[in-house]
C-alpha cells in the first residue's frame, strides 16, 4: 500500500507483528533449543532459555539407538518416489487437459478433486488386507504406491493450473513453423513448463514427507518414515524431552527449509490456482 503512515504506527505494527510471529514460531524454536540441552536442563524449573550447557549428545544418542538414518532414508524414498511417479502419470494428463480441452475436461478435473474427499479410513481395511496378502505391508514400495494415488489429484490440478498459463498462441506459432508434436513438446513447452513442474514437485514432496495416516498404518520397523519413527516417542519413558527434540528437529529441518523457499508457490499450488 502506498499510503503514508506515521513512524509511530509503523513501529507499533512492527512490534505487534514480530511478537505474534515469535509466539507462533516459539514451539519450533523451543524444540530446537531443547534438542541441545541435557535431559536435566530440558525439564529444569525455571526453564532455561539460552543459558544452559549446549550439547550434541542427544543427536548422537538418537542416531545410535534408533537407526535414525534408515527412517530418514525411508522418508526420502517415499516422498520423492511418490512425487516422481505421480508427476510421470500427471504431466501428460494435465498437459492434455490444459492444451486440448474437451467438453468434459472441467468435469474430469472436478471429479479428480472429489476423489480427495474420500476419507482414507474408508479404504483402510481393504488396502491393509491387500498389502498384507501381497507382502507390501511395511515396504517402501507399498507406501510409494499409496501416496502416489493419494496425491495424484493434487498433482494433476497443480500442473493444470500452471500449464493453463502457458499461452496457447505460442504453440500455434510453433505449429505454423512446422514443428512436430514431439519437437513442440520438447523445445517449446518443456522450457515453459519446468517452473510449474518444479513447484509441484516441491509442494508434493512436502505433503508426502508429512503424510501421517498411511505411513503410520502401513509401516512397522522396516519402512517407517520419520512420521512413524517420531510417533514411537509417544510412550513416556522417563526423561526424554531432549531426545524427542533432537529427533524432531532432524525430522522437520529439511522440510522447513524447503518450505520456506516454496512459500510463494504454496499459495497457488494448494489453492489450485484459485488464489494467486
Amino acid at each position: 500500500m502506498a499510503r503514508n503512515v506515521t513512524p509511530a504506527r509503523k513501529a507499533t505494527v512492527t512490534v505487534l507483528a514480530w511478537g505474534i510471529g515469535f509466539l507462533i514460531f516459539f514451539p519450533i524454536l523451543w524444540t530446537v533449543l531443547t534438542s541441545f540441552k541435557s535431559e536435566g536442563d530440558a525439564v529444569a524449573i525455571p526453564p532455561v532459555f539460552l543459558n544452559f550447557h549446549w550439547t550434541l549428545e542427544n543427536y548422537a544418542i538418537v542416531n545410535q539407538r534408533s537407526d535414525y538414518l534408515l527412517h530418514f532414508w525411508n522418508s526420502i524414498v517415499i516422498s520423492f518416489g511418490s512425487t516422481f511417479l505421480g508427476l510421470v502419470i500427471a504431466i501428460p494428463a494435465a498437459w492434455a487437459m490444459a492444451f486440448v480441452p474437451g467438453r468434459r475436461t472441467k468435469d474430469v478435473l472436478m471429479w479428480m478433486l472429489s476423489t480427495k474427499m474420500m476419507p482414507s479410513v474408508g479404504v483402510l481395511i481393504p488396502i491393509y488386507l491387500l498389502f498384507r496378502n501381497t507382502g507390501l505391508l511395511d515396504t517402501r514400495i507399498g507406501l510409494v504406491i499409496v501416496l502416489t494415488l493419494i496425491d495424484l489429484p493434487i498433482i494433476v490440478w497443480m500442473l493444470y493450473t500452471y500449464f493453463k498459463e502457458i499461452p496457447g498462441e505460442i504453440l500455434e506459432a510453433a505449429r505454423m513453423d512446422g514443428a512436430t508434436l514431439r519437437s513442440e513438446i520438447l523445445y517449446v513447452l518443456t522450457p515453459m513448463a519446468v517452473p510449474g513442474i518444479a513447484s509441484t514437485l516441491l509442494l508434493n514432496v512436502i505433503l508426502a514427507w508429512n503424510e501421517a495416516f498411511w505411513t503410520l498404518n502401513l509401516t512397522a520397523a522396516n519402512a517407517a518414515p520419520l512420521t512413524a519413527f517420531i510417533a514411537s516417542y509417544s510412550s513416556p519413558e522417563g526423561l526424554f524431552y531432549a531426545k524427542l527434540s533432537a529427533a524432531s528437529t532432524m525430522a522437520i529441518a529439511p522440510i522447513l527449509i524447503l518450505g520456506w523457499f516454496s512459500q510463494k508457490q504454496l499459495v497457488r499450488g494448494l489453492t489450485f490456482g484459485a488464489v494467486k
Binding site: 507462533i24 519450533i28 522440510i255 522447513l256 520456506w260
Partner: peptide
Amino acid sequence: LVIAPFFVMPTVSALV
C-alpha cells in the same frame, strides 16, 4: 516465522 508450523509433520507438532 508465521508460516513455519505448516511444514512441521503432525506427529512432531502433536508430541511437542
